[in-house]
């Protein structure tokens, strides 16, 4: 039975074009194509079409400056990274390298092989989506309280970053409670604030494996912020002491900036005992509250084990 039908030949045309297939199959294809001018024309047309498509899209280039941004990311990552790749003196370098190799070998067995980085675009969009979802659902808060210390206690061990124990409510904004969220491959805290005009959500998360959007200095806030408009909402993003903060609301941006400025002023008003820590805001508190929370030895370990990046979905 030498005869392949035209449909069978059409189904394998591209294999044939690429020189694939068993010798016997190829011979049968060849025989059909020799005998069938229609299929032969189809083969030529398909081949010609692919060539034209290739020509039409050939030469699309990356935008100028993309490579520079790639290397800037890498340098920033290397500078901030916890891997300690910089060795001061040559003498120490050898020892450090040997130790690093050992450490990588050990860590490599324990940790998942690939760290999953959250790109800036997701950091901009996901919190806004969460805020909108929360508003649509009318769900209650996980904790209703205006007491930051109580909220911080509740979050201990529940998220990687924890919540600063003394994060104050800026003047004119009332802290009403908090929610535990999961997105951007991590657990994070949403502190909810109210004004007479509306609701704000301040997301507090660990800054590992997150790429932040480009930020502009905001002198009144005392730090660089980036601001974004998404679905009629505004998000302000900044990093502070190992945590990333995202403030989301549908209030005017000026009002939201007032919140960030107020946060700084409120920190300045913080009790003297905290003053030193407060000037750097949560930098050191992150460590303090994390350690303070580790009173029960079993719990944090458990939590740490649970906070793992999600494994990627395989392509079907």
């Amino acid at each position: 039975m030498s005869g392949l039908t035209c449909a069978e030949v059409r189904a394998r045309l591209f294999d044939y074009l690429d020189g694939l297939g068993e010798a016997g199959d190829r011979a049968a294809m060849g025989a059909h194509l020799d005998a069938c001018p229609d299929c032969a024309a189809e083969l030529r047309a398909s081949e010609g079409m692919e060539r034209r498509m290739r020509q039409a899209l050939a030469g699309d280039r990356a935008p100028d400056g993309l490579w520079d941004r790639v290397m800037a990311d890498i340098d920033a990552d290397a500078a901030a990274g916890p891997r300690g790749r910089r060795f001061g003196w040559p003498v120490l370098a050898t020892a450090a390298a040997a130790f690093a190799v050992l450490l990588i070998a050990v860590v490599g067995l324990v940790l998942p092989p690939e760290r999953r980085t959250v790109p800036a675009a997701a950091l901009v969009v996901e919190p806004v989506n969460d805020f909108i979802t929360y508003r649509l659902s009318g769900r209650p808060l996980d904790v209703e309280s205006a007491d930051p210390a109580k909220l911080a206690r509740w979050f201990t061990g529940k998220t990687e970053s924890g919540v600063p124990r003394r994060i104050p409510a800026p003047r004119g904004f009332r802290l009403v409670g908090s929610r535990l969220c999961y997105f951007l491959n991590r657990r994070l805290a949403a502190l909810m604030y109210r004004t007479d005009a509306g609701l704000l959500s301040l997301y507090v998360m660990s800054d590992h494996d997150i790429v932040l959007p480009e930020a502009r200095p905001d002198p009144a806030a005392g730090r660089a912020l980036s601001s974004h408009r998404v679905n009629d909402h505004t998000s302000l993003i900044w990093r502070d002491g190992g945590r990333v903060y995202v403030l989301v609301s549908d209030l005017p941006e000026a009002e939201m900036r007032r919140f960030v400025h107020g946060l700084r002023a409120a920190l300045r008003r913080a009790p003297a005992a905290y003053a030193r820590v407060m000037t750097t805001m949560v930098t050191s508190i992150a460590g303090v509250s994390a350690r303070a929370g580790m009173t029960s030895p079993a719990k944090p370990k458990q939590a740490a084990a649970k906070i793992q990046p999600i494994t990627p979905l395989a392509m079907k």
């Binding site: 990311d73 990552d77 760290r115 980085t117 800036a120």
Partner: peptide, 19 residues
């Protein structure tokens, strides 16, 4: 999307460098 493509490429290269 052009901007997303840039983000994806930057993220890809960062992961490649780390690994």
């Amino acid at each position: 999307h052009a901007q997303t493509a840039e983000d994806v490429v930057q993220e890809t290269c960062l992961k490649a460098y780390r690994g």
